[in-house]
Simulated scan of single mutants.
Amino acid sequence: MNIFSEAHRRNPYAAYARLQRESPVLRDSATGLWMLFDHDSVKRALHEHETFSSRLSPPGNQTSQWLVFTDPPRHTQLRALVMKAFTPRVVANLEPRIRALAHELLDARIESGGLELVEDFSLPLPLRVIAELFGVPAEDRPRFQDWSDVIMAQGATLQGGEAQARVQAAFSRVTAEMNAYLQDLAEQRRSVPRDDLLTRLVEAEVDGERLSADALLGFFQLLLSAGHETTTNLINNAVLCLLEHPDALARLREAPALTASAIEEVLRYRAPVQFMFRVTRRDVTMHGQVIPAGSMVLPMMGAANRDPRRFQDADRFDITRNPNPHVAFGHGIHFCIGAPLSRLEGRVALGVLLERLKDFRLASDAPWEPRQAIHVLGPTRLPLLFTPSGRAIA
């Protein structure tokens, strides 16, 4: 089994089900990676940060400043500072603007009766939201897409060699560009504060500490890459799920109040992020196997969310599922800090799509191409045909 093959990444769930039965803890002989497939093991690896460390990035590498690659006490300090600025109220107040942006993107394509969902809608929407969060001028938005593509390319392979060296060189280049750009923008906010996330981040203080320039850049890179990629795939996967389950689509059109519940089921059924990375600090026994200290471990969240021991009819797509204890956004101290924003964007985007597009369907029967990063699930392109619907007066 090659979990990184295109066929597997398009639909990994039959393999997940077999492995949950036969080998819920598996060492891949080709890569040396340990993979965890059942819900309890995945949740344990995500929760027990003292055993399963997130410190995967070498000291001195810019990604070592990313929240997801830190352990306590540094993680605790960084998360407290970021949460001081990135509050639930800040996210909730974005809803009208997210809806307006979603309508604007569809306005450009609605009369044609067709759109490329990724390029025309699901990719630019979260990027525009992030740009507006940071108060970035409209003319600078294209740079965000370029930067995001380079950052996500780091997750396109686990192998070394020349290709990986080129990816790392490109990341170093854009890191320098992003740092210069962000520090200039931050200095502007220190001189003339504005009502945006960047102002709150540069002003945030906990116990006398503020975000360093490296930490600020790290959060910016994380939000621009992981935050954008997760939401793009959430929107794409929601459309795929509904197309594959027309009864659910019909019910959702009749009962839009189920949209939030439907988004949760998409997160479970087709998790945008399929696995995370951890490294063991000590020998640990799981399902009778000893994972040695220093081993790279992949908690397979996509598999855990289909574990029949945790979810009734786990392979059934049910937009009314309750409870729905999925781990699509992780678990424990590293629970995704951007989860409320991604959920909001997914809910608003899906609602607008259902409102504006009648009878949408795939424009091609060809298998879709998986996105670049190997740890995510979703299509690179998704052409749709539809019957235009009217624009609601907001």
Rank of each mutant, 00 (worst) to 15 (best):
Arg97Ser: 01
Ser122Tyr: 05
Phe134Asn: 01
Leu133Ile: 10
Gly113Phe: 08
Arg109Ile: 11
Ser122Lys: 05
Leu158Ser: 10
Pro73Phe: 07
Val150Tyr: 04
Arg79Lys: 09
Glu104Gln: 13
Asn93Tyr: 04
Val82Cys: 06
His75Cys: 04
Arg143Tyr: 00
Met152Tyr: 00
Arg189Lys: 15
Arg143Asp: 12
Arg109His: 14
Ile98Gly: 03
Gly155Lys: 02
His103Tyr: 11
Gly160Leu: 10
Pro137Phe: 03
Thr157Gln: 08
Glu119Met: 12
Gln164Leu: 02
Thr76Pro: 07
Ile110Pro: 00
Arg97Val: 01
Ser172Ala: 15
Thr87Phe: 01
Glu119His: 14
Thr157Asn: 07
Ser148Gly: 08
Met178Leu: 03
Ala163Gly: 10
Leu158His: 09
Gln159Val: 12
Ser191Lys: 13
Phe171Ile: 09
Phe86Lys: 05
Leu105Pro: 01
Pro142Met: 03
Pro73Lys: 05
Asp184Leu: 12
Phe121Trp: 10
Val118Gln: 05
Leu182Cys: 02
Ala85Cys: 04
Thr76Phe: 02
Asp146Asn: 14
Glu119Phe: 00
Gln145His: 11
Ser112Cys: 14
Glu111Thr: 15
Arg99Asn: 06
Ile110Asp: 09
Thr76Arg: 10
Ala156Glu: 11
Leu101Cys: 00
Asn93Phe: 02
Arg143Glu: 05
Val118Trp: 02
Val192Ser: 15
Asp184Thr: 14
